[in-house]
Nucleic acid binder design. Structure first.
Lengths: 246, 246
DNA sequence: ATCCCCACGTGTCGAA
DNA sequence: TTCGACACGTGGGGAT
């Protein structure tokens, strides 16, 4: 490259392609390995600070010179643009954990892995916040005293009806403030042909836990196993659906 | 561009720079607006499927022709590479939510916003999993079954120790399959100077819920309120930490 | 000595 | 017209 005419207007680093480029290149490759934290770049483009071709009075062949200047300016602008891109690539790469960009070093590989990484991040956030929401909801409608399984947290009702020694154990856990009054629970239970044998209420960490044991009233304990199971299942549905309709 | 010599070897789309480029350009800009889901690209480069210059026997000026062919091949390869980059950019962009890439449309802006977005994602994950870990730790050292405050829902432990009519109610919920055997629970309880008054086990949604009521053995019910509270608190820690060490 | 990748300078198109 | 952005073709350097 012949140096063109060394115009006064041009500034900064004039292009020295053969040598300088090699250096830039090398530098660039190095910067890929280091962790770069350049997020707060001045965003809007401010290339081309030149004054606007200075109201060209003058000879006719200034036209030629002007054209060359424009080209040089353009060239520099493009160079700066490329540099910015390189910096952006680097900062992008510095964000992606090393196990993603395996052995590969090319920019396209990096971007590809970045895409995968972003997907992974999104999935992870989705998973985490799903779990969180589930727990939150569970603690709001609040029912199951026991945490069920960690993977699939059930949207379960706050009422469990289970067989017990005497007959049926109904466990109701409810919020302390806005919760279900005990009287309501009891009235529902008695309306289901249950005679309540014992009833205890405990406050567990701000939750009320009403535990009642009842005998099933019809047939006076003549509960064959099958019918018992059926009744129980039936009762579960009825009781919980009734009580849950606050 | 004069068409060079139309060599037989060249294939596919020969470059038609003036027109074709415009079309490509347009097409590319369009593809930026749509949502592209191209993550499963064949990753390793497979440009340049040409046969290897076919063992060049022949005239001396085949050298010239060969050189030109190489250039054309190179040109095509580069074009493909650029296309791939464009696709990657597009798929990157399609992952970043719209509020990030404000009005800007340039590739560097997109990458810049991508960087910010990744940072945001990482922060969010950090926050979420921090909360989660905190809750987990909290639930390991302490022992609440019920979620206390609605914002921080506990990944709660399986043991609660609460006052009850008779004395102390210990509730242990455990997994059905890999869980804590009841005998283990009972042995821990008896080792804590608790005489078990009643014990019931129910299965709730695949979880075993062991509910035991015990009297505190020393002082035989001479539990002043304060000492009772202290004992209870003490018991909570000891029992849950013991039992939880499965 | 082939392939791959990168940076370069340039032409050009669309929008201020 | 000017300016920003993109695709292009090309040279060169570094791998395998």
């Amino acid at each position: 490259m012949f140096p063109l005419d060394p115009t006064d207007e041009l500034f900064q680093f004039t292009s020295l392609p053969s040598q300088q480029n090699a250096i830039q290149h090398q530098d660039n490759k190095l910067s890929f390995t280091t962790c770069i934290d350049t997020a707060h770049l001045p965003r809007k483009r401010n290339y081309s600070r030149q004054r606007k071709s200075s109201a060209f009075v003058g000879d006719k062949d200034d036209y030629r010179s002007d054209k060359k200047k424009r080209k040089m300016i353009h060239r520099d602008v493009e160079r700066q643009r490329r540099q910015e891109m390189a910096v952006l690539y680097a900062s992008l790469r510095s964000l992606v954990p090393n196990e993603y960009l395996k052995v590969t070093r090319s920019v396209s590989d990096h971007i590809y892995e970045t895409v995968n990484y972003i997907r992974h991040l999104q999935d992870k956030i989705q998973e985490l916040s799903d779990k969180r929401d589930c727990l939150k909801k569970l603690s709001n409608t609040s029912n199951n005293v026991a945490p069920d399984c960690p993977t699939s947290c059930l949207e379960c009702s706050c009422v469990t009806v289970e067989p017990c020694w005497a007959g049926v154990e109904v466990l109701v856990s409810t919020g302390f403030t806005q919760g279900l009054p005990l009287s309501r629970v009891l009235s529902v239970l008695t309306s289901e042909d249950l005679s309540i044998v014992s009833c205890s209420s405990t406050k567990v960490n701000g939750m009320l836990l009403h535990s009642t044991e009842s005998e099933v009233n019809d047939g006076a304990g003549a509960s064959m196993y099958l019918s018992y199971r059926r009744k129980l299942a039936d009762l579960k549905v009825k009781t919980s659906s009734k009580i849950l309709k606050w």
